[in-house]
Amino acid sequence: MAAAAAAGAGPEMVRGQVFDVGPRYTNLSYIGEGAYGMVCSAYDNVNKVRVAIKKISPFEHQTYCQRTLREIKILLRFRHENIIGINDIIRAPTIEQMKDVYIVQDLMETDLYKLLKTQHLSNDHICYFLYQILRGLKYIHSANVLHRDLKPSNLLLNTTCDLKICDFGLARVADPDHDHTGFLTEYVATRWYRAPEIMLNSKGYTKSIDIWSVGCILAEMLSNRPIFPGKHYLDQLNHILGILGSPSQEDLNCIINLKARNYLLSLPHKNKVPWNRLFPNADSKALDLLDKMLTFNPHKRIEVEQALAHPYLEQYYDPSDEPIAEAPFKFDMELDDLPKEKLKELIFEETARFQPGYRS
């Protein structure tokens, strides 16, 4: 834990890192770190609560700039109880001085990944967590956004079992017609939660990839272990087919990539493993919904509104309290091709509203 900075004593240090967030945020305490930044909790002297502050230093890398800009653009436009918001952003007053960006968010005690390492969940908890994931996802999908990296560590939890989806750095506007060349190379989302079509096709992607990830998360809540822990690309596919069985001819016809289709045709026939054999203690309604989410063919996979209306979630289902976005989200430009200098300018502009004396 960093010592509390005395008023006016300059930035606090946390594990050798400068955290320049005073005077409003003090009493910093280390939480963890990701690929390009550290997260601390801090005391907000204005709202009198502890908050989470993520320090991001992305400006050396085009990919990190892209992810940072995506996350900020999306989260500043989203407003939903099951999606983490941005409360404040701290950065230098000029673009030349801006080396880091500090993002202030609600402090959540833990995440689903940490929880599943230590606790076996009751059916009631599984049901409530799944409902909140789908409630947040309904809003995301209504904005025409794909999260693309749903996994237990991106689901934040607090002691009252509130759940918030975080990390929109890989999110995209849904565009089933656009052929994202190089899709697989830039697709760094965790393999275990990846839909089979991501490994088999490169053309376009749809909201059904997020539903697949939610199915993987439900299976993990039922058993405290990942359902498809593939060691590499082909191993991942083999794990999936080992449980779902061989795809039907109709399902194979959806695979545009001939090499991928021929690979699947070359494999020995596998039978589907019954879900109640894998999860003998699970609620039968939970397994019915799991089956509809972990469907090989993305066109037959359940959609988020149908999933919310499934009998497993009937005690929570309330369409009048499951809000959607006001308007579909649009990125003005494809960020993939922009140089990091341009992305830095866009991050600077996007964060201006939090600067003292800002006038829109």
Rank of each mutant, 00 (worst) to 15 (best):
I126C: 12
T110S: 15
P11V: 13
R172N: 08
L252G: 07
L157E: 13
S153C: 14
F129C: 05
S266L: 01
T351P: 11
Y312M: 10
E220H: 08
Y64M: 08
I133N: 15
P339G: 07
D20Q: 08
T118V: 06
H269D: 09
V173C: 03
E305M: 03
K55Q: 10
K138T: 05
S213L: 05
E305Y: 03
H80D: 05
Q119C: 07
A6S: 13
V18K: 12
K138G: 12
A9R: 13
A42I: 04
D124P: 06
M221Q: 05
P319K: 09
N224F: 11
M13C: 08
R148F: 11
L156C: 05
K138H: 04
R15S: 15
L338E: 08
R50E: 12
E12C: 11
P298F: 01
S57Y: 14
E326R: 08
D337C: 01
R172L: 15
I302W: 06
A9E: 05
S57I: 03
Y43N: 15
P319Y: 06
L346R: 02
Y102N: 15
G136F: 01
E109V: 13
E220N: 07
L76N: 01
R172D: 07
D288P: 04
E220F: 09
E81Y: 06
I86R: 03
L267Q: 15
A2K: 00
R70D: 03
S248M: 08
A7D: 12
G34D: 01
T190K: 08
H120G: 04
L241I: 11
L28Q: 15
Y233M: 14
T68A: 15
L116M: 12
Q236E: 08
Y193S: 11
R77N: 06
A282C: 02
P274A: 07
E81N: 04
G242L: 10
P226A: 07
Q355Y: 00
T26W: 11
D318R: 04
F354N: 11
T181W: 11
N253K: 13
Q132S: 12
N123T: 05
A286I: 00
I165Q: 10
V304C: 09
P323M: 06
C254W: 03
K55N: 15
D162F: 03
L218Y: 11
Y102I: 05
D106C: 00
L258R: 04
D177E: 14
P356R: 04
D162C: 00
I217Q: 10
N238H: 14
H178S: 11
R148K: 12
K99Y: 04
P152K: 08
N45K: 14
L137C: 03
H80C: 01
D288F: 05
I198F: 15
L137F: 02
M13S: 12
L258G: 09
S360P: 14
V49F: 05
I347E: 13
V304I: 09
I227M: 04
L290G: 09
P229S: 13
I198Q: 05
C166A: 03
G204R: 14
C216N: 05
A189E: 13
L241S: 13
